[in-house]
Simulated scan of single mutants.
Amino acid sequence: MKIRPLTIEGAYEVTPVQHGDARGTFLEWFRFDALAEVLGHRFDLAQANLSTSARGVVRGIHFADVPPGQAKYVTCVSGAVLDVVVDIRVGSPTFGAWEAVRLDDQERRAVYLAEGLGHGFCALTEGATVAYLCSSGYRPGHEHGVHPLDPALGIDWPAGDPLLSGKDAEAPTLAEAQAVGLLPRFDDCCAYVESQRS
């Protein structure tokens, strides 16, 4: 398993080793110990989610209040998606930046993103199925979104006319979310991650 950092602090791309023969393929898509070694702390699993999406669906940009926030380990088990990590942490050196990784059922990559980062994806195929491991459970009133088509973010979604949920379509822009104090602060996120290491 190869784990490499993305340009946004707290985000990683994970590429598993696949073992294949005439019967099919076997791989370890998540290794607790390998991830903990890179992160410097445990990734506690509290909830596992699965979504299927039609081609052209964009989900996100989602995030949770920190603390505790919600770290995620995301992979695409069927089809393909363009997975996007957005730095929405006020005060971060890469605030407003985003990075994309293709997740599909061929390379079997995964993405890990720390608490306080925004997450979204675009389905590149019909019935794209995404599995998420989450460090905390869903907490109504503590989970939020930033509009995925915010021109200030300028995410290059590979969909001519993206399909959004009503909630995502009504989400504030990054600037609007910052103005009302909805976004996590970089220092708070770093302090929370550091508290997990001790």
Results as ranks from 00 to 15, higher is better:
A64K: 14
R109F: 01
G118W: 04
F121S: 06
A177Y: 10
L45M: 11
A152H: 04
E194G: 06
A175Y: 07
Y73D: 03
W29C: 09
D33K: 13
R31I: 03
V101Q: 13
G154K: 12
G127E: 05
V66M: 05
E9F: 01
S136D: 13
R102Q: 12
R59S: 06
H19D: 10
V86F: 08
G91H: 09
L182T: 12
T129K: 03
Q196Y: 10
R59K: 15
T7W: 03
S135Q: 08
T52F: 05
D105T: 05
R108Q: 14
E194D: 15
P68I: 11
A177E: 07
L117M: 06
L174E: 07
H119G: 02
T52C: 13
G20Q: 13
G145Q: 03
S195K: 05
A175W: 09
W29H: 11
L163F: 11
E115P: 09
G166L: 11
D150V: 00
T25H: 08
D33Y: 06
T94L: 07
V58E: 00
L133H: 09
F95T: 06
G166A: 13
Y192K: 11
D65Y: 01
R109I: 01
E194C: 07
G181M: 09
L182R: 13
A64F: 08
R42I: 00
R31A: 15
A97P: 01
V146E: 00
R31D: 15
W98L: 06
V180F: 08
E176A: 15
A100L: 08
R185W: 08
T25G: 04
V57A: 14
T52W: 01
G154R: 13
E9C: 03
P93I: 12
C189G: 04
D83E: 10
L117A: 02
E37K: 15
P68V: 12
L133R: 06
L149S: 00
A152Q: 04
